[in-house]
Amino acid sequence: MFWIGCHLSASKGYLAMGKEAEKIGANVFQFFTRNPRGGNVKALDKGDIDAYIAFAQQRGFGTLLAHAPYTMNACSADEGLRGFALRMMEEDLERLELLPHVLYNFHPGSHVKQGVEAGVGMITDMLNEVLEKGGKTPILLETMAGKGSEVGRSFEEIRQIIDGVGGHERMGVCLDTCHVYDGGYDIVENLDGVLDEFDQIIGLKRLKAIHLNDSKNPMGSHKDRHEKIGEGTLGLEGITRIINHPKLVHLPFYLETPNELDGYAKEIALLKELRKEG
């Protein structure tokens, strides 16, 4: 099964997102848990959740990807902002317990000149506190492009965070194709080598989702600027190799390209043509 979808607006609820995804040919989708540039969260609608679950089961939908807001910074220099990040994550995960098949993805954070070691320590402190409270939803660290003081720009930094929570079984990784390429990993000419490196440092069993994006910038640029599929520096051949790689084909792919719904529909149709099933 080719699990392919895109980022949708959660403002209308889960069932509306499911129907929207079906309309554009998707069978998975990603959504922000709350305002991506703020901290506000919608009131919980249990009826909508139940209706979506029934819809998804009937349609054979795959795993959803819930994305934490960009304002969540677990390694901020401001103690108040770190506390805010903790409260957001705890609240998000509590709400996601109502969904049977969902992953929770977040940007590890920016250490803001405090240094990587300090940043990793603060991130793991937050995660340890969250994980102590239990739950079933996997928590994914997103691979970052290395812009500014971002933590998670290398596989080694991701591994440090996972080690800091004792290798907890709920911890996983979302690999963003634009981010890793901008971060200096050549997934166009050396995809096998990059995946081998990921496996040696983190372990492929931790890889749970793919953000499938082309990039506006060359490898190693540390810019983090997504491009439409086939229109950037990864190119259509590079993207085709990624979606057909035997170590990745079982994973869900989520588009975050600069598109409206009609653009996502075209990309999903194109990717289905490029996917070699069986």
Results as ranks from 00 to 15, higher is better:
218 P>M: 10
223 K>C: 11
110 S>R: 14
87 R>G: 09
99 L>G: 05
127 L>H: 00
229 I>G: 10
208 K>V: 02
172 G>K: 01
39 G>N: 10
117 E>Q: 15
267 E>L: 06
94 E>H: 11
181 Y>E: 08
192 D>N: 13
32 F>N: 01
61 F>M: 15
157 E>K: 08
269 A>E: 15
229 I>L: 11
122 M>R: 15
120 V>P: 08
216 K>W: 06
263 G>Q: 09
74 A>P: 05
268 I>R: 08
190 N>Q: 14
141 L>G: 05
263 G>F: 10
118 A>G: 13
223 K>I: 06
249 V>Q: 15
66 A>T: 00
106 F>Y: 06
260 E>S: 12
90 E>K: 13
18 G>H: 10
196 D>K: 14
61 F>I: 11
214 D>C: 08
196 D>P: 04
150 E>R: 04
104 Y>G: 00
263 G>I: 03
163 D>Y: 02
159 R>N: 11
213 N>E: 00
6 C>F: 08
150 E>Y: 02
139 I>K: 01
3 W>K: 15
8 L>H: 03
120 V>Q: 12
169 E>Q: 13
106 F>V: 00
267 E>C: 07
159 R>G: 05
128 N>Q: 11
105 N>S: 12
257 T>A: 03
148 G>R: 08
167 G>S: 07
7 H>A: 11
90 E>T: 02
43 A>D: 12
91 E>T: 14
235 G>R: 10
131 L>G: 01
84 F>G: 10
278 G>V: 11
204 L>Y: 03
165 V>L: 01
5 G>F: 12
190 N>T: 07
50 D>H: 07
204 L>N: 03
34 R>W: 00
187 I>T: 08
240 T>Y: 02
8 L>K: 05
95 R>E: 02
143 T>L: 06
